[in-house]
């Protein structure tokens, strides 16, 4: 079994990332590359679906930190969904749940990007 795979899917203007496995110092480059590809393609509305993510170490959190400013400065955001208890707990320990919007379902996360458009 591969330690990490990251599938990407574009749904209109939202890019969905599906990391499957774990993200640590060994696997983070793959996740970083997928994230950077979206940014390079100027797709700044990003949802990371964590349903297949078993755990994330600081290397993975650092990858998100490294990309978020450019994403937000470009009018987008990186939002997270379907975190398991272990991953959510890591986010909470670091206070990342206050820095990033976390949604229970993928659809909620996608629709959250439509909120601003209605107003």
């Amino acid at each position: 079994m591969s330690e990490l795979t990251v599938e990407t899917r574009d749904l209109e203007d939202v890019t969905l990332l599906y990391p499957k496995g774990f993200i640590n110092a060994h696997t983070v480059r793959l996740f970083e590359t997928a994230l950077q590809k979206a940014v390079d393609e100027r797709r700044f509305k990003i949802v990371v679906n964590c349903s297949g993510l078993t755990y994330i170490a600081s290397a993975g959190l650092g990858a998100i930190m490294g990309a978020i400013e450019e994403i937000r400065a470009s009018g987008g955001d990186l939002r997270l969904t379907e975190l398991n208890e272990t991953v959510l707990n890591i986010f909470e320990i670091l206070g990342f749940d206050r820095l990033y919007r976390i949604f229970p379902s993928e659809m909620d996360a996608i629709l959250s990007f439509r909120e601003g458009m209605a107003s």
Partner: peptide, 24 residues
Amino acid sequence: RVDLARYVSERRTGGLGVHLMEKI
């Protein structure tokens, strides 16, 4: 020391590991 607000604005990523260890 980790200051999350500054981390975002300064695009810093280091120090999170030690911070996590101390929290856990």
